[in-house]
Design a protein around this nucleic acid. Structure first.
Lengths: 119, 119
DNA sequence: GTAATGATTGAATAATTGTTCAACTATTAG
DNA sequence: CTAATAGTTGAACAATTATTCAATCATTAC
């Protein structure tokens, strides 16, 4: 324990000043871990369409399966990931479970993304 | 050619009205393809740190390798992906190549992401 | 010219991940 | 009770992908 990791970088620093300035303001590792996990939820064709659909209306697994022409199982697996990432929540009403967006950030993220891809 | 794909959905639609309303406003497939590819660039721990670093200062491969404690090769491979996604550009000055963000959307996307993960 | 350095490349490997399949739970209708 | 339907689950499989390694290119210094 308490072992210092061996550096793996295979070169010498060229601009020590730049590296130090950037390092000084760098968020902690966990932030980048959380951030990349958040965007991972938007990085899949299926998930991004699910999120977009839920940004229009609350929907159940069957509706999403019909809309996206996929099996209920595939949709359910992805909804589980989205649930664990706190991007969607659900409400049970009898046999049917209605999924919805967990908060408003999802719409903001969509907006920025569409802005970029539309030049 | 011109074959109609067999639907794979394994259930009946529950709320036809909802599905039709959502389908009517759904962006075209290519948009979701582009959008998920954009966010894929933010979905990896290494790439997201590279982008963040470049949002602070222009940097060369060596600087990034030192900062993130990785090999030049690993950094270079990821920079290539980012270049192909039009998120970074570069400028050659002698032996050194300076990478920088290609446009301002990257910073906006970071902002929204950090907003979300910080509750 | 040669040596050294910054950077890229392609192939190989290892890890991750999306979908399918079959089995399962929970609720409702008859 | 049974049958039907909405949804979940875990294992298996296929596809994708991040890093490593070794070789290579480009520029500069000698």
């Amino acid at each position: 324990m308490n072992l210092k990791k061996q550096p793996v970088c295979d070169c010498h620093v060229i601009h020590e000043d730049i590296v130090e300035r950037v390092r000084a303001t760098m968020p902690k590792g966990k932030d980048f871990y959380d951030l990349s996990n958040l965007y991972k939820m938007f990085s899949d064709h299926t998930r991004v369409r699910i999120l977009w659909a839920l940004s229009c209306e609350d929907m159940c697994v069957c509706d999403l399966a019909v809309l996206l022409d996929m099996t209920k199982s595939a949709i359910s697996h992805q909804l589980k990931s989205l649930r664990l990432a706190n991007l969607v929540k659900y409400e049970k009403q009898g046999k049917v479970i209605y999924y919805s967006l967990a908060d408003s950030h999802v719409k903001d993220i969509f907006e920025k993304g569409f802005e970029h891809i539309h030049e």
